[in-house]
């Protein structure tokens, strides 16, 4: 069963109750303004944030839990995993700290313990322990206005489309996260353009991991190809050199017999 979160920005009142619930649930320490923090409010100690947009609009930011996550395919040791519940979770005991996941995430979600001598990657894990035991994530539970709700992805997509149908003109005609980069488990419907979440970049529907597939599939063939080509070249050249040194005895020509 693949779960999802649907955030309806028109319902958000910017109360940040989700932020507080997240911090309580995950025991996150208080945050300071740090040199390495971004403006979006996410940090190693804030796994979700509410961004103030002009005209009193609020947009909640969190890990999008892509259906085909770039971070999962990037991690060299498989510390990140897309689970059946839809959550992208992180096994800190495997992590080597290469930060490739941070570099590859199209939404720029994973954050780092920059101030720690033993640092880990930090991001929303969809309250994995809660959703795998039948409860809903802390943030959706805390939301007082049902602006962010939890459910099965297929169902929430239906809910989203229904809202778009029922109040045309209220929303931009798009379910954010339905198809971009192969779809995400965190969906948005909104009356404002949400492309600021990807710094104005239009995401295509191609899942990011697809982009390395060709190159990665070519690896064994490239290796075997190069190795056998080298061996072949070597053999040919060696043989030619040998022949040059001691010319092969010429086969007797037919004319001689005649």
């Amino acid at each position: 069963m693949s779960f999802a979160i649907l955030t309806d920005t028109t319902k958000c009142i910017g109360c940040r109750e989700c932020v507080i619930a997240c911090k309580k649930e995950n025991n996150l320490p208080p945050d300071f303004p740090r040199r390495w923090n971004l403006e979006d409010g996410l940090s190693a100690r804030n796994w979700t944030s509410v961004i103030d947009r002009p005209d009193g609009k609020y947009v909640r930011k969190q890990c999008r839990h892509c259906l085909e996550p770039a971070c999962v395919s990037a991690c060299p040791v498989g510390a990140l995993e897309k689970t059946k519940t839809g959550a992208v979770i992180y096994a800190r005991r495997k992590c080597i700290g290469c930060r490739y996941c941070m570099m590859s995430c199209p939404f720029g979600i994973p954050r780092y313990d920059w101030d720690q001598p033993v640092p880990y990657i930090r991001k929303c894990i969809f309250c994995y322990s809660r959703i795998s035991t039948g409860r809903q994530p802390a943030c959706t539970e805390a939301c007082p206005t049902q602006a962010t709700i939890f459910g099965e992805r297929a169902h929430l997509l239906e809910v989203a489309r229904q809202r778009l149908r029922e109040s045309p003109g209220k929303y931009l005609d798009k379910v954010w996260g339905e198809t971009e980069v192969g779809g995400t488990s965190v969906l948005y419907i909104s009356d404002i353009d949400l492309s600021f979440l990807t710094r104005g970049q239009e995401l295509t529907d191609e899942p990011v991991p697809e982009r390395t597939k060709l190159a990665m599939n070519a690896v064994p063939f490239a290796f075997l190809g190069v190795v056998s080509a080298m061996a072949a070249v070597n053999w040919v050249i060696q043989r030619r050199m040998k022949l040059e040194r001691e010319p092969e005895p010429r086969p007797p020509q037919e004319a001689d017999h005649a």
């Binding site: 395919s73 060299p76 498989g78 510390a79 992590c95 080597i96 700290g97 490739y100 390395t212 990665m216």
Partner: peptide, 16 residues
């Protein structure tokens, strides 16, 4: 943890 590359595999990763 660098040696984790040896025991934890993710063959899809270019970095691996």
């Amino acid at each position: 943890n660098m040696w984790h590359l040896i025991i934890y595999w993710n063959p899809r990763s270019p970095l691996f």
